[in-house]
Amino acid sequence: MSLSTVEAKASEVPAEDPAVKGIQGRTPLQLVVARLRTDRVAIISIVVIVLIVALAIGAPLIAAITGHGPTDTNVDTGTDANGQPLPPGSAGYLLGTDNLGRDILVRIAFGARVSLLVGVLATAIATIVGVVVGLFAGYYGGWLDSILARIMDVVLSFPYVLFAIVLVSVFGSSLELTILVIAFFSFAAIGRIVRGQALSQREKEYVEAAHSLGAGNLRIMFVDILPNLVAPVIVLATLLIPTAIIFEATLSFLGLGIALPTPSWGNMLSDAEGVGFQAWWFYIFPMMFLLLTTLAFNLLGDAVRDALDPRTERIFAGRRKKKPA
């Protein structure tokens, strides 16, 4: 290639295209971050999540400061003279104690570890499995899709509590089992969405282009199609975390998840059974944290979806954005 032709052709295009100005150098991710930063609900949700994560990480620190371990039954200081639990604000027990004299604040902090660990890990496993299954089903179609799609339908229509009871009675309850059970019942939700998206992406011209270049199926699936599914998958995963947290709390409440005495928000609630209005702090605080966490994740998920979907930009702008002719 001679230099002169290169020059001649380059001269046909000005270095700075006016049509491109204003969107230069902004990656899709940067755009999403920029939009999130203007969304007050998203900021508050992130702050709440960060605080709860800090609480979980700092749980041992809180235990050290207060001097109470999460499972310590503080026989001397944790109950009043009559052996009754202490209300919130009592000396040394910010959120009070339960009927065994355990520090509720410390238990909540350790419970946050369980909740977040289960929520994030179960969602991560569910997302990976869901994406792979959904991609294969949607991309290949045919009999593979028929089988995988049916499996996902079955999983979604399964009575999961019954299934969990059976599993626990066979294997005994544990953290690992809880995570796997939640992941198993959650992957289908992501898998179905990914399958649907992959089905439509498969027909796009860029896939045909990759095919014409000689790209193999795996490459097309994971290098070409997958990046186009990142947006819905992120949104779904964010929304799955609170579902998984509630799932864990439900299982633990029923005694099928995290085994006592290890604290989790779910089994703390189950402990509070029957205490009625007298010892309201038994259930109010775990419930509050559960609600706050799931609400924050749900609102963040909605905010991320809005930020990822450019059509909602119009709502932010407050006016109808019309593309001129």
């Binding site: 001269s11 046909e12 295009v13 295209d17 006016p18 049509a19 204003g22």
Partner: peptide, 14 residues
Amino acid sequence: TPIIGSPPSLISVP
């Protein structure tokens, strides 16, 4: 004999 470049953005008209 094409026209060089592309039509301008209507947000920042020359």
